[in-house]
Structure formats: structure tokens, C-alpha cells
Design a protein around this nucleic acid. Structure first.
Lengths: 131, 131
DNA sequence: CTAACTGCAAAAGCTTTGCTTTTCA
DNA sequence: TGAAAAGCAAAGCTTTTGCAGTTAG
């Protein structure tokens, strides 16, 4: 375990992620934190997001876009991704380890985890689509 | 549907992907095609990969790395991703629509698809890990 | 023929990094 | 007080784009 200090900047980033149920990009986090700590730099945001995610305090998500998303919920769970507005929501179900069991019989991998994402239209975009 | 011409470059890229069971990056594809078409440019590779994937002839994969991967298999299937060497393998099972059914009762999304990836050590890295 | 495509090179966009100064413990 | 982190700016990497010349149909 590396040494790590809880700075004002890091604390603010962690709080922002924990109080948010969206899954913001680094840049969105930067803009929000800037309201409280105007002099914070984007580099600091990136460095802290990296530290926090490699120590397991947050998660880095990849939704197939140039920008990564960050998630303050560390429990294992799945995501839903709107193909229209790119919003990402948490799904109300924990990871299902049975899936890993099933695939352990189908491939030669030593499985350590899995990731499941649902794609579709979020409630808002579903409504708009009807018009 | 947009008009599209089957150029020598596009054909070579498509064949390369279909004859390969790895899931190469744009740059890897570029290097391979260069053996046959030395003057091809990386920009052309990117443009063709984009055309091919938006017309559904290939798939673009995101494994959470800066570079995207490309897959010549269009049937819906899952992937295994080695956390040590970043190799990506196809899993010998088709997409399970029951998963989408299950989540359609748990969220308000209009679900159109899903993606499942297994993480772990591939057979090669599993062996090396033992030493 | 001519719209679509190529090659080349420059630009764009996100993220990382080097360096000096500041700050937490 | 010293190691770790911040701020700033420059660099890095992958991907996209503009443009003039080429080519498939």
C-alpha cells in the first residue's frame, strides 16, 4: 500500500462522487469542485481520481467514449447506459457470481471479475422518442 | 444508408479482421495491412474502421484502454479480457437475452442490448503466474 | 465522368507528466 | 521538517479532419 494523504482537494473529489448518483467525467468533476476550490487544477483532479481508483475508493468506468466516468459507489454493481443521451445509471442489483461460475466452465481463464452493462433508452429519452 | 465503395484498402481491413481471432487495435491493423499496401495511411484505416463498424460489418470494442479494439465477428457474443496481458478472447456462448428480460423488470430503460465481459488471467498468464 | 476515397499532415481532445511551490502529518 | 501533493503548463497519445490528388463504378 502506498502512502497517501487526505488533502482538501482529494476530500472534495471523493465527496462530490459520493453525493452524486450521476457518473461524471473528470472535467465535470473539475467544474463542480471549482465552485469550492477555484484554484484547483485539472491535473490535480486527474491525479486524485487515479489515486482514489487504484486504492479502490472509487471506480473508473469506461462507456466507450473518449472520456472516462467515475463512480463513488464501490460495491459491485451493474450499469445502464443510455444510447441517446449517454447518461449512466446504477442498476439495482449486485453482481451475480453465478455468471463467473458459468463461464469458468466455458473458457480457460482464471476469472477474477466481470462487468455487465445494459444499453437502451433511459426513461427521459424513451418519452421524447414517442413524440 | 450511405453510399460506400469497396476499395482495396477497405477490403484488406475487412479480411484482416475476419482472418484474425485476436482483436487488434487500429494501429495493429495498420501495421499488418502495410505489408500488403505499403502506402496506406493510418487515417484511412481509421476512416474505414468507422465506416465498417457503423454499417455493422465489424464491431468496435472498448476494453477500458486508450486504444479501441476491432472485431470481425458480428454475431453477438461476449468477451474475456486478460488483466495481465490485455489480450481479448471471444467467449463460446451467444448473448443471453434472458439477461435483458431480467433487467427490464428492474429498471425503467427501454433495453436494446447488453454487453458482458469476463476479466481474469488468460491461459498463458495463468501459467506464468504459477512460477 | 464524378462522387467517394486516399494519403499526408496538421489539429483536436483527453490524459499524463515535469517542475517548482505548497501543505499535510 | 520532509515527503507527498498542488498548480501550471507543456507534452503525449489516440483519433479526427482538411485538402488536393486518385479511383471505383
Amino acid at each position: 500500500m502506498l502512502k497517501s494523504r487526505m488533502t482538501r482537494q482529494k476530500k472534495a473529489i471523493l465527496e462530490e462522487l459520493r453525493n452524486s448518483d450521476s457518473h461524471p467525467t473528470a472535467d465535470e468533476i473539475y467544474e463542480r469542485i471549482r465552485q469550492k476550490i477555484p484554484k484547483i487544477s485539472l491535473g490535480t483532479v486527474y491525479r486524485n481520481l487515479e489515486t482514489l481508483s487504484s486504492s479502490g475508493m472509487i471506480k473508473k468506468l469506461d462507456i466507450g467514449h473518449p472520456q472516462k466516468r467515475y463512480d463513488g459507489r464501490t460495491g459491485s454493481h451493474y450499469h445502464a447506459h443510455c444510447i441517446n443521451c449517454d447518461r449512466v445509471d446504477d442498476l439495482p442489483a449486485n453482481s451475480d457470481l453465478a455468471i463467473e461460475d458459468a463461464f469458468s466452465h466455458l473458457c480457460e481463464y482464471h476469472i477474477t471479475g466481470h462487468q455487465l452493462t445494459i444499453f437502451g433508452l433511459c426513461p427521459d429519452c424513451k418519452k421524447k422518442e414517442k413524440n
